[in-house]
Design a protein around this nucleic acid. Structure first.
Length: 487
RNA sequence: GGCCCUAUCGUCUAAUGGUUAGGACGGGAGCUUCUCAAGCUCCAAAUCCGGGUUCGAUUCCCGGUAGGGUCACCA
């Protein structure tokens, strides 16, 4: 870090117009990581100045989502800072005050046109294939603003703006991007263009991190900073997240999911954050699995990608599996117990059995929803109920060269199993030892097939020895007996 | 249409003047002398195009092309 003593302050400033999706969550995460890395301050500011589009409950949902992801903020709704409220609509006095300053300087004026007139100008510009600029229609004399008309900023100097972006480098944009934009709407609420600059100033925001849709507005922002005599913050433009076909930026129209849906599907927040961080950023090493703390220390603005990235759910699934494997065993077992219990409360699950089922979960479950699906599809039924075997033919190994007399064989196995010492007993090992003798003579398939089928009623299953050890001696013998009863 | 941004395997990306262009996901093959899964090993797979600068360009410059963004009383 540079040797300035200024404390780093970042913010995530969503509008409460719906749920948080992948793009918003990524922006929040990057701003959060940068603040935390530098022992700075992270603010959640709600930009609710568009009362038309506001969706009830979205603030709560955004907070819930950030909570799930473990993105904690120092100031936010219900947590005002020394600068006051973090809800933009509660800061209107401040916006007014700054608007008045501009009016006093002759840098703001009421827009005299009707919506229809404006629309006409816009149509005309489009027909003539040139960009629409309000300043071409700026009135010669400014009326006094009474709040009934929108208040516009009078851009005083049409020039080329140059600025630095931590991600994109040195940028500049020209005169065409400069215009008399609206500061305060006729409903009295400020626009984003105006409010975010004033609020950032009061909140002491040092780093503005946002998507690249704002780049083209930079000359306007810069001209306003100048007019307000506010020092520029540091800008960091994040790359867009693209649709799978790469033809468009991902938007809510494309059916992007609410982040909370990922929670419902059984993704771990650790995995989700890990993945989110890698969309448009990477540490430059070959490490891919990063804990929250590792992300905090590794995160660098300079390593943020310039180009857009596609959100790849398949890789997220892989990462989630990695995190399930990394979970502390007791935590994982508790989760397994909960899921199975929710599915069928009548299943009695000792900690010992859960721990054994966990082995299978680690192999097969990429996200917790998978376990639910396995339970629902009956894939794991044999752990809880006696399998139904349609007929004895199912138990017979077909390959003639490894012919085995199933009835004799199973009878023998039961006898040997029953004779084993119950002390220090482990079904897995016992069964393995017994079957081993046969396996040396016959193919492994020949000896394992009847056992697997008798225990599970299925031709595809985890290792039958593991199944047997989960079932225990008594149940294992019971199922083998039930199988030979068919003969 | 104006302005602006971007461009390495299918995807996420490493390498900023000198590498057999590296890793990960996904895909393919094999191993694990039982199935499925997991695991391990191996393989295929990329510098958008054209000029220039240079002994040498993924890398620097110019021009194309393609994609994206923006031109709201939305953020």
């Amino acid at each position: 870090m540079k040797n300035n003593s200024e404390k780093i302050v970042t913010r995530f400033a969503p509008s409460p117009t719906g749920f948080l999706h992948i793009g918003g969550a990524r922006t929040a995460l990057f701003a959060y990581l940068w603040a935390r890395k530098n022992n700075g301050t992270f603010i959640l500011r709600i930009e609710d100045t568009d009362k038309e589009r506001e969706v009830a409950g979205s603030v709560e949902q955004i907070i819930e989502t950030l909570g799930w992801l473990g993105i904690d903020f120092d100031y936010g709704p219900e947590k005002p800072g020394p600068f006051g409220s973090c809800i933009q609509s509660e800061r209107l006095d401040t916006h007014r005050e700054f608007a008045q300053k501009l009016i006093d300087k002759g840098l703001a004026y009421p827009d005299p046109y009707t919506q229809e007139e404006l629309e006409g100008f816009r149509e005309k510009a489009k027909m003539e294939k040139r960009p629409f600029l309000f300043r071409d229609h700026r009135p010669e004399k400014f009326e006094k603003w009474d709040g009934s008309k929108p208040l516009r900023f009078k851009v005083s100097e049409i020039k080329r703006y140059k600025w630095h972006d931590e991600v994109r480098g040195d940028l500049e944009a020209g005169e065409d991007a400069l215009d008399d934009f609206i500061l305060i709407k006729s409903d009295g609420y400020p626009t984003y263009n105006f409010a975010h600059i004033v609020d950032d100033y009061f909140m002491g925001v040092t780093h503005v991190m946002r998507g690249d849709e704002y780049i083209s507005s930079m000359p306007r922002f810069l001209s306003l900073y100048d007019a307000l005599e506010i020092k520029y913050p540091i800008f960091a433009t994040l790359p867009p997240i693209l649709r799978e076909d790469k033809t468009k930026k991902l938007s809510k129209r494309d059916g992007v999911k609410d982040i909370l849906e990922y929670r419902a599907e059984g993704f771990l927040p650790e995995a989700f954050i890990n993945f989110l961080a890698f969309i448009g950023w990477n540490p430059g090493t070959e490490q891919e699995i990063f804990s929250r703390d590792e992300l905090k220390s590794a995160f660098e603005l300079g390593k943020i990608q310039k180009a857009g990235a596609v959100f790849n759910e398949i890789k997220l699934l892989w990462l989630n599996h990695e995190w399930i494997k990394k979970m502390p065993a007791n935590e994982r077992n508790a989760k397994i117990k909960t899921i199975i219990g929710d599915f069928n409360p009548s299943f009695s699950l000792s900690d010992e059995v859960v721990a054994k089922i966990a082995h299978i979960v680690i192999e097969r479950v990429q996200k917790w929803g998978d376990l639910k699906i396995m339970l629902e599809s009956g894939e794991l039924d044999y752990f809880f109920t006696m399998p139904k075997i349609e007929n004895k033919e199912k138990l017979v190994w077909r390959d003639e060269k490894d012919f085995i007399n199933t009835l004799e064989y199973l009878t023998e196995v039961i006898k040997k199993l029953s004779n084993t010492d119950a002390k220090n007993w482990n079904t897995s090992d016992e069964l393995k030892n017994i079957i081993w003798d046969y396996a040396t003579e016959k193919g492994r398939g020949a000896v394992l097939w009847p056992i697997r089928y008798a225990l599970t009623g299925k031709d595809k299953s985890p290792d039958p020895f593991v199944v047997a050890s989960i079932l225990g001696k008594e149940e294992t013998i019971k199922r083998l007996e039930s199988a030979i009863a068919l003969f």
